[in-house]
Design a protein around this nucleic acid. Structure first.
Length: 645
RNA sequence: GCCGAAGUAGCUCAGCUGGUAGAGCAGCUGAUUUGUAAUCAGCUGGUCGUAGGUUCGAUUCCUAUCUUCGGCUCCA
């Protein structure tokens, strides 16, 4: 075929001779566009400007833009090459492994002859800036797969990459030289890249860390250097500001500043909740309690330490052993529970259950302990001791769909109470390490799949990531900084009820095993607290704020009136304290603002005489004088439901 | 668990190549009695993560270990 037709973004169609390059098309549109262009897109494939357009289709010229993921992808990929070249220059003997762009920037995995640290960043960045200033072209060079293998011979990582590309079905292997092939630095790479290094206008190296070759723990340990690249300086600056903002919101920092919790060296991954943090924790728990009790859940309480025999029966001793804390009582080996499910089955098993009892929804704010690998802990987000807002729904197969649907509604509602939405739902299927027959897994996955369809849920497949007893849905929410958090989950389990002998008498007067749905909406209270601390940056909404009001007497002369205000508010159930310190009002206000207290009430001579208070709202400042009764109206609307739309 | 970095007063941090530690804030005491984001002065406070080792002498050098941080992996 001698011609190809391209559909441009404005839906106009352009017919060009076969073999026309992206650059030629750009030039035919405008010289300015051709100058700015960094790559072109045909369908869902992004290609170098210099490459002939391989076929007809949707066609788009990519120009640098912080809003265009395709543009950022190309810029970051090219920037990764420049980083790698700079490191090779500065650390001779460096062997390169893999350097892709990622959503948050790019990285390059490499093995350097000596360790690279943050101290080396300025030198690396300087060298990168030089390479960019030289404005050398990215030159693509394609060779046959045999030639590709020959060229990478002896280079463990690159050869492996080439082998993988060939296994994937690539017929040619491409290399990119930054400049002239054979003279300048080059790297095995599929591309695409910007036309030349000068297109990289704004970059920064962010961090260095270890990573495994192919993410395999048993394989080589590599050095991973993270960087970021944007279309322009403004984009880079705003991203750096974003990182600063995230740092300021870090729940570990705020937890200390706001006196919410701490973690001790002697109990890694276990949280000591201080009074203010414990309030937050209990408020969350009580909120969930209110929500689920209206939806037919029954709360139970079960032991935290259970004899090993139960864990053997349930399969935990076999499939979950390395995560369990083992303890001993005389000759008995016990384990601290990592999950509540076996205990809930034990409750279900008490007495004879009828089909009329189903669905039975047993809930527990059960404290679980999991001996997570050292090095995986992270503040409240990943701990070893935590409470789930857990429940197990015992039901029939016919009830799975409606229970899954109801739970989705519950998750949606409860996220909305905090201003969150479900960002996506992942569908995790059978893992390698599992109990139960494949037939049972087929059935469970099928049932969950049908239930999600019935609930109208779009899911993303997450193969091999299910629980060891059943497939699961994972509800992911996005916080105000756009970060994903996995919180809620529901899992379909045909296995544990069988293993632990749970039965009910059906309408046919026969005994049947119920299906068990494991589910949690917030996930762990600890993690959810961490997410909320970061989401609100410590500025908790009134209903959650550990201290809602602080009364600030102008001087000690008005401490009596301040105390009267405090006790009146306190009797109405408002969480209030008095700052009776011998400080000037400016200092007390500063303290109150720093402690992120929603309302500061200033009381001095004027207020004491007129029986009023001066209200100062967090962040908004002076609100003027009002009566106490009027002020207390604010708290009548102070419930999570006001967040729900 | 793996790679890299770090651990000094309640907090944030300084302390060059070895000679037993400093600042700011916080705390305490006193003065001041204050009107919308820091009043002043004085004082207290650390066996420098832990355990060994080298040395006349270790916060500093070495080894081990624990914890934290950044990642990998894993996950609620």
């Amino acid at each position: 075929m001698a011609e190809i037709s391209l559909t441009l973004p404005d839906q106009s169609v352009r017919v060009v001779p076969a073999g026309t390059t992206g650059r030629e098309v750009a030039e035919s549109i405008s010289q300015g566009l051709a100058r700015k262009a960094i790559a072109y897109k045909l369908g869902d494939k992004t290609l170098d400007m210099a490459l002939p357009i391989p076929a007809s289709g949707e066609f788009r010229i990519i120009t640098p833009s912080n809003e265009d993921p395709d543009a950022l992808y190309v810029l970051r990929h090219s920037c990764a090459h420049v980083l790698a070249e700079a490191v090779c220059d500065l650390f001779p003997g460096t062997r390169l492994a893999y350097g892709p762009p990622v959503e948050e920037g790019f990285y390059y995995d490499l093995a350097s002859p000596k360790p690279i640290s943050g101290d080396d960043f300025p030198a690396i960045e300087k060298r990168m800036a030089e390479i960019i200033k030289e404005n050398r072209p990215f030159t693509r060079c394609e060779v046959s797969s045999e030639e590709g293998l020959r060229r990478t011979e002896g280079d463990k990582y690159k050869n492996d990459n080439a082998v993988r590309a060939i296994t994937r079905g690539d017929s040619v292997i491409s290399f990119y030289a930054t400049g002239a092939p054979g003279t300048n630095w080059e790297d095995l790479c599929a591309g695409p890249h910007v036309p030349s290094t000068g297109y990289l206008k704004a970059f920064k190296i962010l961090s260095v860390a270890g990573a495994y070759w192919h993410g395999d723990q048993t394989s080589d340990q590599l050095t991973r250097i993270y960087g970021i690249c944007f279309a322009d300086k403004a984009g880079l600056e705003s991203h750096l500001t974003f990182l600063e903002e995230a740092k300021k919101r870090d729940h570990r920092r705020l937890g200390k500043e706001l006196d919410l919790f701490h973690i001790e060296d002697h109990s890694p991954g276990m949280v000591f909740w201080h009074p203010k943090g414990a309030h937050l924790y209990n408020a969350l728990r009580n909120h969930v309690r209110n929500v689920i009790s209206k939806r037919g859940y029954l709360e139970v309480i079960t032991p935290e330490i259970v004899d090993k025999s139960l864990w053997i029966k349930s399969g935990h001793a076999d499939k979950y052993n390395e995560n369990m804390f083992i303890t001993r009582s005389g000759d008995r080996e016990m384990a601290v529970k990592p999950m509540n499910c076996p205990c809930h089955i034990e409750i279900f098993n008490q007495g004879l259950k009828s089909w009329r009892d189903l669905p039975m929804r047993l809930a527990e704010f059960g404290k679980c302990h999991r001996n997570e690998l050292a090095g995986t802990m992270h503040g409240l987000m990943r701990v070893r001791g935590f409470v789930q807002d857990d429940a197990h729904i015992f039901c029939t197969e016919d009830q799975i769909a409606s229970e899954v649907r109801d739970f989705c509604t519950l998750v949606r509602d409860i996220y909305a109470d905090f201003g969150f939405q479900i960002a996506k739902v992942k569908f995790s299927t059978r893992p390698e390490k599992r109990i139960g027959s494949d037939e049972l897994w087929d059935k469970a996955e099928q049932a969950l799949s049908e239930a999600t369809a019935a609930a109208g849920l779009e899911t993303i497949l997450n193969p091999g990531e299910g629980a060891f007893y059943g497939p699961k849905l994972e509800f992911v929410l996005k916080d105000c900084l756009g970060r994903d958090w996995q919180c809620g989950t529901i899992q379909v389990d045909f296995n544990l009820p069988i293993r632990l002998g749970a039965t009910y008498v059906g309408q046919d007067n026969q005994k049947h095993h119920p299906v068990m749905l494991h589910r949690a909406a917030l996930g762990s209270i600890e993690r959810f607290c961490g997410i909320l601390i970061e989401e609100y940056a410590g500025d908790f909404p009134l209903w959650l704020a550990p201290t809602q009001v602080r009364v600030l007497p102008i001087s000690e002369k008005f401490s009596e009136y301040a105390e009267k205000v405090r006790s009146t508010l306190s009797e109405s159930g408002i969480r209030v304290e008095v700052d009776g310190s011998n400080e000037k009002i400016g200092y007390k206000i500063r303290q109150g603002e720093q402690h992120k207290i929603p309302y500061l009430l200033i009381v001095g001579e004027k207020e004491a005489q007129s029986e009023l208070i001066s209200v100062r709202k967090r962040k908004d400042g002076d609100q003027g004088q009002v009566s106490l009764d009027e002020f207390m109206n604010v708290f009548k609307l102070c419930t999570p439901d006001t967040n729900r739309s």
